[in-house]
Design a protein around this nucleic acid. Structure first.
Lengths: 135, 135
DNA sequence: CTAAGGCTTCCAGTGACTGTAAGGTCAAGG
DNA sequence: CCTTGACCTTACAGTCACTGGAAGCCTTAG
């Protein structure tokens, strides 16, 4: 299977697959003409990577997860700990985004949004109207 | 006011302030010894940038927002449109994170997390147990 | 034989900083 | 006057995870 097919069936761009090879996440074989040759096992790894990245794990997390996957003696506790840590980070990020959203929403709702130059959003960013300590 | 004081009072790292100068967001004066010298106006701009970045606007958004702030003829509708677009992006990001979180939570809850190698999280990443089309 | 499309490598760019090195400046203490 | 330490300066490299582009080889269809 060459890189185009591997890309199609994994959903990962060919560029990304080459990058994963560069950083040592996968090591496809090569055919006599120098083209990459992806076996079933390689495709399985690509699918694994695609899913793990899709869940927001970092590349280094993926590296660890793959090695845990290939280590039949691993303890599931290790994996669970990683996953939980990642869930926490996502939760933190969500809370951060929600807080930004809330603050900006207040400003947006105050803004009439017409052709006049008066703009509570800019005033808020400039530090005016911060009596509520919102920024 | 030198960069250390500017950093303390704006909450932005000195490195970041220098970077903002590099990319043309601020242009502090210089004293005879070559040190940056931040006036009250510069401090106001730094505070503006700090708030806008804190709300998740990109650097380019900040550039636009600052020029709108300084343009007393701007239409508040322009600012409101930018802010709304940004709110939408944040909402999309939140939804994306929530979806990842939900999927990973299911896997984490299935995992007993002990010393045994059996691990539903890794199995999920590997594409097993995807009967519910969850990944 | 040629043209299109896929493959290869390598290098540079993204965003928004952050780290580090090498060196100039300043104020206080001895 | 000298030193020490805390500032400040610049310039360059590194981060993360790709992504774009150029230059050139390989394969397949017509």
């Amino acid at each position: 299977m060459n890189i185009g097919e591997a890309s199609n069936s994994s959903g990962l761009p060919a560029k990304t697959i080459r990058y994963y090879e560069d950083i040592g996440l996968i090591s496809p074989d090569r055919t006599s003409n120098g083209y990459r040759d992806f076996s079933h096992t390689h495709m399985h790894k690509l699918a694994f990577l695609s899913r793990a990245r899709g869940l927001g794990f970092t590349i280094e997390d993926c590296r660890t997860l793959m090695s845990l996957y290939e280590d039949t003696d691993r303890a599931s506790a290790d994996v669970k700990a990683m996953a939980r840590e990642h869930l926490e980070k996502m939760e933190d990020k969500i809370e951060e985004l929600k807080a930004m959203q809330a603050t900006l929403s207040v400003l947006v709702n105050k803004c009439h949004g017409d052709n006049r130059p008066d703009c509570p959003i800019l005033q808020g960013l400039a530090g005016e109207n911060t009596e509520e300590g919102m920024l």
